[in-house]
């Protein structure tokens, strides 16, 4: 790489009549830089796409991906006719949408409070602290949740009991589990998500605020008429992008925290794929489901990206 790069220069004699070739030669150092990454892409990003063919095959480990026999759409049929199909889809969407609907406003409110507060040191400290959970793995988070929510020793239940209530096994109770999943995710990501809104707020022209102040607008009015309109584009864009990946409901989180009593509300497509594919050695079925999710996800991203481009003039691609 370094050899080719070292001789790469801007001004280079080009072959007459071949402008493109000249440009390519001129940029050869960049192609050299791209060589390894593209090789990596071919193997680790496109390899899986090639392997996805086993969704239409009956995968036999000894025969490998290519020699296993074709079975058409049988695996998809098995999944669609599974009694858990709708439940998996519903759980995935409910948890995912819940995180978006609660997480996004929380992040915006936190950003607003940070933006408006003039207690600088305190503000900075709050910011630092609220970032923290973002850097914790779901293993650690699971541990924290256990020590917080366990029926006998958990803090929350201690308080409930002190107030004369009955303890609740939050992580095993289907009526509580989705709430816990959503709230723990909001707790973890709230501070981090606020960054982007806070940045958008600092980008608003200070002249607007000054003018509003002169005209006697209250702080609330300033937020209502200046700050929020100023960041609405960012909010909508983030929301649309998130909607595009709505089928990712948080595999690691669920994987760590779920158990049989809450399967009915906690089992999502990804965890089902893991259990069927890896634990039950049904690779083709699991791949078919993964593929189904991928295709659906692609359609969603495409649709929401189009919406975003049309109405907001900003898009992912």
């Amino acid at each position: 790489m370094s050899n080719t790069a070292a001789i790469g220069k801007t001004v280079k004699p080009t072959r007459p009549g071949s402008k493109t070739w000249g440009a390519i030669v001129q940029h050869k150092a960049f192609y050299a830089m791209l060589f390894l990454p593209l090789a990596y892409f071919a193997i680790f990003k496109y390899g899986p796409l090639v392997n996805a063919q086993i969704a239409f095959k009956d995968f036999m480990a000894l025969d490998g991906v290519w020699k296993s026999p074709w079975v058409g759409f049988k695996n998809f049929g098995t999944f669609f006719s599974s009694i858990y199909f709708w439940e998996l889809l519903r759980n995935t969407l409910v948890l995912s949408l819940g995180k978006l609907l609660i997480g996004l406003p929380m992040a915006v409110i936190l950003a607003l409070a940070l933006n408006e507060s003039s207690a600088n040191k305190f503000k900075h400290f709050v910011q630092t602290v609220t970032y923290l959970p973002h850097f914790l793995s779901w293993v650690v988070m699971y541990g924290v949740l256990l020590l917080l929510l366990s029926p006998d020793e958990g803090l929350v239940n201690d308080i409930i009991k002190a107030l004369g209530g009955q303890e609740v096994s939050f992580l095993q109770d289907p009526s509580w589990y989705p709430t816990i999943v959503i709230l723990s995710d909001v707790w973890k990501e709230m501070g981090w998500s606020a960054i982007i809104y806070l940045a958008a707020m600092t980008g608003i022209d200070p002249g607007l605020y000054e003018a509003a102040e002169v005209e006697g607008a209250t702080r609330l009015q300033r937020i209502r008429y200046i700050t929020l309109p100023g960041i609405v584009d960012v909010i909508v864009t983030i929301a649309l992008l998130r909607l595009g990946t709505i089928l990712d409901a948080g595999f690691h989180q669920i994987f760590m925290t779920y158990s049989v009593p809450v399967y009915s509300v906690g089992d999502i497509i990804d965890t089902w794929v893991y259990r069927q594919g890896v634990l039950d050695f049904q690779f083709s079925l699991a791949t078919a489901v993964g593929l189904f999710k991928g295709v659906l996800g692609l359609c969603l991203v495409w649709a929401f990206n189009k919406l975003s481009r049309r109405y907001l003039d900003s898009s992912l691609f």
Binding site: F44, L49, N51, T287, L291, V301, F317
Partner: peptide, 18 residues
Amino acid sequence: VVMIPFLFNAGLIPGYLV
């Protein structure tokens, strides 16, 4: 080329087979 795998994920198993 970069965008396609970004938008389309084949899931756990195919990647694991790689």
